[in-house]
Design a binder for these strands. Structure first.
Length: 504
DNA sequence: TCTGGGGTCCTAGGACCC
DNA sequence: TCTGGGGTCCTAGGACCC
């Protein structure tokens, strides 16, 4: 939803590309260790409960595929090299690849470390024919090979995302397929339904039972039938894809919606003390990642996979977003109390979602300490009748009422009445949803900024106390009444500017 | 040597509000 | 007195993708 939809499709020329590296993780390993070249390489979990992440083409010849248990792979191909993933190396290669792609067009939608859509109509020399598309794709593949030191990619180009994605898969590895405008249906018809994005094992099985195995079969069904078989959303989507009706635009800069960490243990864990400790480790890792990304979130989810593979989740939504392990860990542990773990636990996970639109990073150096200090000072102030701007908004209603409409320009007279850019030079606005600025303004003796989905997340800063505690209100909370224009803004922030501008 | 880890999106029911 | 809807938020689970 966030991230602008761009570049209208479908098109009269194939100008959307899908680029996908071949056996990416395994290829990086073979690149970095020449003795592995030409040999079966399997990257993935190497413990007793591991699964294959990526198999080199040499390993695929032995029938090894992604998601296969590593134990099974070892039986089929005992002499392969089994490697634990080196994500740092893959991330680095990914950055080189994405940078190379950016030389061809500014409109790129990354899908994962090794995969992206490109809009070649928006490039330096816009593609307007299948011949040009083919020529540009050759250059992209060569450039990737060059910047990564020898990795190969497959490319597909078509008039839509669907066709580009389908095409890139038709001739792996190191393939290049252009589906010209008008040829879409002929390409799709004979393919198995499983090739359509969104059709996984469960959907394929349902379709099979209805006698549907190819895309042409789907096309012959009527929409009502598909909807009754697969549900409204999936049914309608499939009906459209089957006739190559796909006008999805590329979206750049998609914001993260959740951050999670999970571990499968080599042996089931039963000891409640150990479970608690594991959960705390997971919470700490999630918090570290949140802080690295400048994020915090309100909804905490604990995931449990039991000895028999049944998987449960329990979640709770906190009043304030957090990236603090002292908040997250106890919350995660409380959720586990509810679950019968006596039979043994094979996996634990902790996730944070409902991410808030504010950044706690080096803007507030050593934020935890600053926060604790601020809380203490707020209490002192409160005790001495000074009041806190959020806890007692009425005390500052005059300041807000005096300047009640311009919420982004922070017009005013006080020394702190400056725009975000003035106040934090060189720093990006922490707001990302729909390109909406985080609102911010001087407020009485303090400074406040933040925003949220249906929530107003604020942080106060005063000259004396520095950054204050984070507080969150529902946007209709009456405590916010004096600041109504802000609450109004945050109610609509889940929509892109285009959506907001479009008639309902 | 049965079944990873990081995500996204959808559904469905209940609470709550207007 | 009966009978509503719509909308949002929250939780749990499932399908899917790489």
């Amino acid at each position: 939803m966030s991230g602008g939809r761009l570049s209208r499709v479908p098109r009269s020329a194939p100008s959307i590309a899908h680029v996908d590296l071949d056996a990416f993780f395994a290829a990086v390993e073979q690149r970095d260790k020449p003795s592995l070249r030409g040999k079966p390489v399997i990257v993935g979990g190497i413990g007793p409960r591991g699964v294959v992440s990526t198999a080199s083409y040499e390993a695929r010849a032995f029938g090894i595929a992604s998601a296969m248990p590593t134990g099974q792979a070892r039986q089929r191909c005992p002499h392969a090299a089994y490697l634990y993933p080196r994500f740092g190396a893959y991330r680095k290669a990914s950055q080189q690849i994405m940078a190379a792609l950016a030389e061809f067009t500014p409109l790129i939608e990354p899908l994962s470390l090794d995969e992206a859509f490109l809009d070649l109509a928006a490039g330096v020399d816009p593609v307007t024919s299948a011949e040009q598309a083919h020529e540009v794709a050759l250059r992209i593949k060569a450039r990737i090979f060059e910047v990564t030191g020898g990795l190969t990619a497959s490319a597909g180009i078509g008039s839509s995302k669907l066709m580009a994605k389908i095409a890139s898969d038709l001739d792996k590895p190191s393939g290049l397929v252009v589906v010209d405008a008008g040829a879409e249906q002929a390409v799709l018809d004979p393919l198995p339904v499983r090739r359509l994005p969104g059709v996984g094992p469960a959907t394929a099985e349902r379709l099979r039972r209805a006698g549907v195995t190819t895309i042409a079969d789907i096309r012959r069904m009527d929409d009502a039938e598909l909807v009754s078989l697969l549900g409204t959303s999936a049914g309608r989507a499939l009906a459209r894809l089957a006739v190559a009706d796909d006008n999805r635009g590329l979206s750049v800069d998609r914001a993260a919606k959740s951050v999670s960490v999970e571990d499968t243990y080599d042996r089931d864990v039963t000891d409640p003390t150990v479970l608690g400790r594991r959960l705390e480790e997971l919470a700490a890792r999630v918090c570290a990642r949140l802080r690295d990304a400048g994020l915090s979130g309100r909804t905490v989810t604990t995931k449990v996979r039991l000895y028999d593979f049944t998987t449960l989740s329990r979640s709770t939504t906190l009043t304030d977003p957090t990236d603090d392990v002292r908040v997250l860990a106890p919350a995660a542990r409380r959720l586990l109390v509810d679950v019968d773990t006596s039979g043994g636990v094979r996996l634990l996970g902790v996730a944070v979602s409902g991410l808030a639109d504010w950044v706690q990073d080096d803007l507030f150096v050593d934020a935890a300490d600053a926060l604790a200090e601020q809380e203490r000072m707020s209490r002192d102030k409160l005790a001495s009748g000074g009041g806190d701007p959020v806890a007692a908004p009425d005390a500052h209603a005059d300041a807000a009422a005096g300047d009640d409409t311009d919420v982004t320009a922070a017009a005013g007279t006080g020394p702190k009445d400056r725009s975000f850019a003035d106040r934090f030079p060189g720093r990006q606005h922490p707001g990302w949803n729909a390109g909406q600025d985080v609102w911010h303004r001087a407020l009485g003796p303090g400074w406040v900024w933040g925003s949220g989905v249906g929530r107003v997340t604020v942080r106060f800063e005063t000259a004396e106390t520095g950054p204050g505690p984070i507080r969150t209100f529902r946007s209709d909370d009456e405590a916010l009444a004096p600041f109504e224009p802000w609450a109004e803004i945050t109610r609509s922030d889940d929509r892109s500017p285009e959506d907001a501008a479009a008639p309902a």
